[in-house]
Simulated assay, not measured.
Amino acid sequence: MLNIATLTLNPTIDTACEVERVTDTRKLRATGERHDPGGGGINVARVFVRLGGNARCYYLSGGATGVALDGLLDLHQLVRTKIGIAGQTRVSTTVHETSTGLEYRFVPGGPTIAESEWLSCLDLLAEARCDYLVASGSLPVGVPDDFYARIGAIAQERDFRLVLDTSGAALAAGLSGGGVYLAKPSIEEFRALVGSDLITEREIEEAAMDIIKRGGAEILAITMGSDGALLASKAGTLRLPAIAVETRSAVGAGDSFVAAMVYALGHGDSTERAFRYGLAAGAAAVLTPGTDMCRADDVERLFQQANAVS
């Protein structure tokens, strides 16, 4: 059986609600309130389980909000390994304005992590048993930029495949350290990584293939929102358009993409087919409101629909 684990260093309790109009000063009466466990790796695990897989969540958790996060993970029936921290787990809020269809997202920076806390995380991962480890999300304050590179070294020693979805210095260090099987930056994150605007498709392809040739990752999937996505590997590049859907929320699209692509790869699909499955999951995620993730039946429907056209 395919065995994956996810790592979330800066998890969140994701709250979502709807109001008719966002205004200042006045008390706004909200409806449709929901609370979900969130953060990159946790979101990936939620989707992976929906698709029919099993995943263990490694995550940092602390304070009263950390206890609430633990409870939400149990409600979602996710297998979890908690790394306790002194700080409070953050709470993020998404507000959908029904009169305009706009979405407002408020995301705190999160707690400061002590050296002993992130070292404990590395110690646990050094004993992890999995086929894939998905390390996803931002690094909280206190965690060194090369943290994901250190996990890459563990991946090579433990012989599991590291999937990396992060940005900034953490992404740069992770790719320079080697040991990354799949990396999934957004186009904005990729431009920041290479330090170029990358206007044309050819410029994006050349920059992506440079990462592959330098051994930064075996597979690079760059998501571009409404412009689709680009796949790069030793076999070359593939650009696919976005799957047209009605957008209800942008929350979780990238995490859904990663979960579905890893799910397909882990079940023996080709890199291209897994890429297409990830694209379908990303599109399916925007169909769901607030902090909900993609639904398996939407992923399958959109995947079949896109393949029939392509």
Rank of each mutant, 00 (worst) to 15 (best):
G41S: 01
A30R: 15
V49Q: 15
L125K: 01
S120E: 00
G40F: 05
D123N: 06
G87N: 12
P37C: 11
H35P: 07
T93H: 15
A68V: 11
L122V: 00
T89Q: 08
V107D: 01
I113R: 05
N43M: 08
L119T: 00
G32Q: 14
G41E: 00
G110I: 03
G87Y: 10
G39A: 10
A135F: 02
R21N: 09
A114M: 07
H35M: 13
V49W: 02
G39P: 00
A114S: 08
L125I: 05
I83F: 08
T112H: 08
R129H: 03
G87I: 07
T89Y: 09
T94L: 15
Q88E: 15
G41A: 00
G32V: 00
Y104D: 04
G52F: 06
G137D: 11
T65R: 01
A68M: 08
V49M: 11
V107N: 00
A45W: 05
F48C: 04
S116N: 08
G101K: 10
K82V: 04
E18H: 12
Y59M: 12
V19W: 08
R105V: 14
V79Q: 03
G39K: 08
D36I: 02
G109F: 01
N43I: 09
T93G: 12
A128Y: 05
E115A: 15
L119N: 03
Q77M: 14
G40I: 02
L122T: 00
A30V: 10
S138R: 03
L133S: 03
T65Q: 13
R50V: 05
Q77Y: 06
T100V: 11
A55S: 15
D70S: 14
G84M: 11
D70P: 07
Q77P: 10
K82Y: 01
D36H: 11
G71Y: 05
T100C: 14
A114Y: 03
D131A: 03
T25Y: 09
D36R: 02
R129S: 04
D36K: 02
D74K: 03
L122W: 00
S92T: 12
S138N: 06
T25L: 15
T98E: 15
R105A: 09
F106E: 12
L28E: 02
L69K: 00
A30S: 15
R46V: 05
E20N: 08
P108S: 00
G40L: 05
D24Q: 13
T89S: 13
T93S: 15
T100Q: 09
A126S: 07
I85C: 12
